[in-house]
Amino acid sequence: MGDTLHPTRRVWITGGNGMVGRNLREHARARSWEVLCPPRSELDLADDGAVARFVRDHRPDLVIHAAGQVGGIQANIADPVGFLVHNLDIGRNVIMAAFEAEVPALLNLASSCMYPRNRDHALRESDIMTGELEPTNEGYALAKIVATRLCDYIVRVRPSAAYRTLIPCNLYGRHDKFDPAASHLVPAIIAKVDKAMRDGEDEVEIWGDGSARREFMYAADLADAVWRAAEDPAALPQMMNVGVGDDHSILDYYRAVAEVLGWAGRFRFDLDRPVGMQRKLSDVSRQRAWGWSPPTSLRHGIAATIRFYQQQA
Rank of each mutant, 00 (worst) to 15 (best):
L185V: 09
M129K: 06
A141S: 13
V146H: 13
I190R: 14
Y163H: 07
V146Q: 11
A191S: 15
L142D: 01
I145L: 09
D152M: 06
K192A: 13
G173F: 09
I154Q: 04
W207K: 05
K144R: 14
I189K: 13
D179G: 04
M129N: 14
C151R: 07
A181W: 05
P168G: 07
A147C: 02
T148Q: 09
S183Q: 03
N170T: 01
A196C: 10
D127N: 03
W207R: 14
A141L: 05
W207P: 00
R174W: 02
E205N: 04
C169I: 10
A161D: 01
R174I: 05
A161G: 03
C169T: 13
G200C: 05
S126K: 06
C151K: 11
N170A: 15
I145E: 11
R156T: 07
F178M: 09
G131T: 12
L171V: 01
I206G: 00
R149W: 07
P168K: 13
I154D: 02
E205A: 14
D194W: 14
L133P: 00
L166K: 07
I154A: 08
F178Q: 12
S160G: 13
I128T: 10
R174D: 05
C151P: 01
T136M: 14
I128H: 06
V157H: 06
Y163M: 08
V204P: 03
L150D: 03
A191Q: 15
A196E: 05
K177V: 04
R198Q: 09
T136G: 01
T130I: 09
G173M: 10
E138G: 01
D152T: 10
A196S: 10
D199C: 07
W207V: 02
A188R: 12
V193S: 11
N137F: 11
Y153V: 12
S183E: 07
A188L: 06
V146L: 14
D202W: 02
L166T: 04
I128C: 11
V155M: 11
T165A: 10
E132V: 08
H184L: 03
K177P: 00
D194L: 08
L133V: 03
V146R: 06
V193P: 02
D127G: 00
V155Q: 15
V157T: 13
S126R: 11
E203V: 05
D199K: 08
K177G: 04
Y153L: 14
A147S: 15
W207F: 14
I190Q: 12
A182S: 11
V186P: 01
E205Q: 12
P135C: 08
E203A: 06
D209S: 07
P180A: 12
V146P: 00
K195H: 06
C169G: 05
